[in-house]
Design a binder for these strands. Structure first.
Length: 423
RNA sequence: GGAGGAAUGGCAGAGUGGUCGAAUGCACUAGUCUUGAAAACUAGCGAGGGUCACACCUCCGGGGGUUCGAAUCCCUCUUCCUCCGCCA
């Protein structure tokens, strides 16, 4: 969430910037400032009541010790009304603080100045394109047909044991999945990211920490009995590793990578666009997370973009990069680049990675700070990106690498797969 | 799952109703000394709110209670440890 102090000092600039998201921030910001003022004045009142009662208590202690019980009892009587006051004030204070928090949760992150205005994905700005779109035979198949033809992914079996959106990978399909995970992790480690294995279930506090709660409650699977959530992305456990931490400026940069399955309820549309691997309830993803000094976070974002470009070049997949417009930008992000692979057989672009700088938005919720050389504390900047999400990469490979003799395996993956072709 | 014990500052660890945000040691930071380092010595060293700055307020695992006053007493939750049982 946004920092109160920043809101106090830059109200108009924030209102202006949030227009790019088509978000009218004026009413909520004014409420925030009102509420904040109310909170502070209650706090001051409460503090002075407590100060007085602390003082009386001390006096009473001294009086009892010196045997002046009568005088002590007189003071005791005085504390009764103070107690009532403090109870009342602290209730009001709590209420104001909660209200303030609820308001702050409703305000999305302020977009970076380079974010284009716009309301839908059609307004996203293409900033880069690379790779050769292969010419396929006229009878080229979409991946769900290929999966069936070569018996490498079974969607019906997944329906049988769980439900729609939970595919079963078989034989070379399973092996290719495992190969992709290992390959991505190896590339990330090579680039300086430390590999982590983290829990796939998180508690409520973690959900709030990265911003999935409260506004995306319905998108996560919830285990009511234990009040735990299945992670929608490794971003949640990995970023929450740092909740309530204060690191030293020397610790930058922190670069982590991790593979996890991801679970999304995504009660959404059905149809051709969500067929096959295009949209799933469970899928695999390798994530990269960075923690940076505020001055370096945009350099870091560029490095992450370059890193993902390299992977896609090695895989020889045609892709493009989009700078998301205000309307398409995630709630917590200040700037996001989406990577899309072109699926020739489907004749459309498939999103395979999303790389974002959250600036201090997540750090503020997480209370994740660093100490500078002078010992002053500041919020860090957090960033993350997929490197990469498996299903659509797999779809892209199956579709773009199909030949009359089967599906060729990209060269860099062959050592991981142990075979060169699916046939 | 059963029985018992514990949770205090970055770590270790004292503190069982008042002057305790909290001894002491280690670690850390700065300075002195040294060619440099180490050692020694000196000083500093938790977090949040609040203030121009002080003052002041809150926090001893979380929540609630008793009391004029709680790290200390009571209730509850969570976590960890030991023993037994079960188990990949």
């Amino acid at each position: 969430m946004l920092q109160l102090q920043v809101i106090r000092e830059n109200k108009d600039a924030i209102i202006n910037a949030l227009k790019k998201r088509n978000f009218d921030a004026k009413p909520v910001l004014e409420k925030v400032l009102d509420c904040d003022e109310k909170r502070r004045s209650l706090q001051t009142k409460l503090d002075s009541v407590l100060a007085e009662s602390n003082k009386l208590s001390k006096d009473i202690g001294f009086l009892f010790k010196s045997g002046k019980a009568d005088e002590a009892n007189v003071l005791k009587a005085k504390t009764t009304s103070l107690k009532e006051d403090s109870k009342k004030l602290s209730d009001e204070l709590n209420q104001a603080a909660n209200q303030l928090n609820d308001l702050l949760y409703q305000i999305p992150n302020v977009p970076n100045e380079t974010v284009p205005a716009g309301s839908t994905d059609e307004d996203n700005e293409e900033v880069f394109r690379e790779g050769v779109i292969p010419e396929l035979a006229s009878n080229a198949l979409p991946h769900w047909e290929l999966a069936k033809k070569y018996d490498i992914i079974d969607f019906e079996l997944g329906v049988k044991i769980t439900g729609a959106g939970f595919p079963v990978y078989k034989g070379k399909g399973a092996r290719l999945q495992r190969a992709l995970i290992s390959y991505f992790l190896d590339k990330n480690v090579e680039a300086g990211y430390t590999e982590m294995q983290v829990p796939h279930l998180v508690n409520e506090t973690s959900g709030f920490g990265t911003g999935q709660l409260p506004d995306k409650e319905g998108q996560m699977y919830h285990i009511g009995e234990d009040n735990l959530y299945l992670i929608p992305t490794a971003e949640v456990p990995i970023t929450n590793l740092f909740r309530n931490e204060i690191i030293s400026a020397k610790d930058f940069p922190i670069c982590y990578t991790g593979y996890t399955p991801c679970f999304r309820r995504e009660a959404g549309s059905y149809g051709a666009h969500v067929r096959g691997l295009n949209r799933l309830h469970q899928f695999d993803k390798v994530e990269i997370v960075r923690v940076e000094h505020p001055e370096n976070s945009y350099d870091a974002l560029n490095q992450m973009v370059e890193h993902i470009k390299n992977i896609l070049r090695e895989l020889k997949l045609p892709y493009r990069i989009l700078r998301l417009c205000g309307g398409d930008l995630g709630f917590t992000s200040a700037l996001t680049f989406d990577f899309e692979v072109f699926s020739t057989a489907q004749d459309r672009w498939l999103e395979i990675s999303s790389v974002s700088n959250f600036e201090t938005y997540q750090a503020n919720r997480l209370k994740f700070r660093f100490k500078d050389e002078n010992g002053k504390k500041h919020l860090v900047h957090t960033l993350n990106g997929s490197a990469l999400a498996l299903p659509r990469v797999l779809a892209g490979i199956l579709e773009n690498y199909q030949t009359e003799n089967g599906i060729e395996i990209p060269e860099v993956l062959q050592p991981y797969c142990g075979f060169e072709r699916i046939d």
